[in-house]
Computed example of a mutant assay.
Amino acid sequence: MTTSPRRLTPRRLTGLALLASAAVFATTACSSGAGAPAAESDGDWSAVTVEHAFGSTEITAEPKRVVTIGWSDEATLLELGVVPVGMAASTYAGDEDGYLPWDLEKLDELGEDKPELFNTDDGMPVEDIAALEPDLILGLQSGLEEKEYEQLSAVAPTIPYLDEPWKTPWQDATLAIGKALGREDDAQKVVDETEGHIADLAAEHPEFEGTTVAAATVVPNSTDFGFYLEGDARAALLEELGFTRAPFIDELEADEGAFFAPLSREHADRVDTDVLLMWHSTPEEREKLEKSDVFGEIGAVADGRYVGYDDPAEAMAISSPNPLTIPWVSDRLVDDLAEAVEGEA
């Protein structure tokens, strides 16, 4: 996971809304970077091709210097034992420098130095990325525009999102990164282990099975709710835990390609779900909403089946799940959901 998106084009606004609405809504790199792959190649390299939204990218030599620009690409890379030479700073949920807690923990575990950071809030810093001398650029969890993809591809082989911006499933992203690194078997093992972890959590909580859930936020610059749709990472993770997406969500109107559907608070009576899970941009926003009469009239809220988050790191960990953040955040998430199912949240 990297930082908040960049310029305020329509796609940028989509990314900005995703980061902020999840309550999820540095130094410029100018050297060659400190990070390096943590494991050496154990065989000859064979060229690989990764298909994606803008066509395909061929990687003809084993990547040694990887740069990540996608939200969670660096975390997936670290879980595969490879340290990027540079990555985008997280200006929302990172520390004062822009490093995320799970990344720092993994770097410490690997005994590796921190990668160089660059800021993407105001645009893709192509020159700064080029200064890192990458031989692979990863942007699977991003809204990378085609022009930017072409600019970055002139620097090094670049892999953007696979199908739709911001919507590459963590499993697909992991396998694509593994393929690009020549570590497909390792990537499959990571996917299997992470899916096994989720399956174990679901097995420990059979009460989740068939229970309806609605994941939502407050839409930025409005008072509307935004309910996450099929294909959104948050909704997908909840379904992997055994929950069923509340049917009313599929009845809401959403823009083409959107990851959430808005619902005016005036129509809060349409929120029909066993459990309501919400992300808030700030504690103040959360407190204001939770004190409002209309919010208290929602059945799940009135019955103690509502869970709210306002911690940026937790929000980002859930909003862009990956093999590193899922174990990092899952214990609290599952405990909170279990209490909500019982009406004790």
Rank of each mutant, 00 (worst) to 15 (best):
T60M: 04
T76G: 04
P321G: 06
A130M: 10
G15Y: 06
G196H: 09
G111N: 05
D172E: 14
M316K: 12
A216K: 02
F208M: 02
P37M: 05
D311K: 14
K167W: 00
S4R: 14
T273W: 00
I59A: 03
L107E: 02
V190G: 01
T168K: 02
P84V: 08
M87Y: 03
E230D: 15
E344V: 08
W102H: 12
A302S: 15
A20T: 15
A180N: 07
D192S: 13
E112K: 09
F25W: 07
L138I: 15
E51H: 13
F25G: 11
D122H: 14
S32I: 08
I298V: 14
L117C: 05
A23E: 13
T168M: 00
A180I: 12
E145R: 12
L162G: 01
A176P: 08
F208N: 09
A233G: 09
E204S: 13
A156M: 09
A47V: 10
L18F: 12
G308H: 07
G86C: 04
V24G: 13
M124Q: 11
D122Y: 13
L252P: 12
Q171P: 01
T27R: 11
A26H: 09
A258E: 08
A17M: 11
G210H: 01
D103L: 12
V24R: 07
H197G: 04
E148L: 08
P115G: 01
V48I: 08
L107Y: 04
F208H: 07
F208V: 06
V67Y: 09
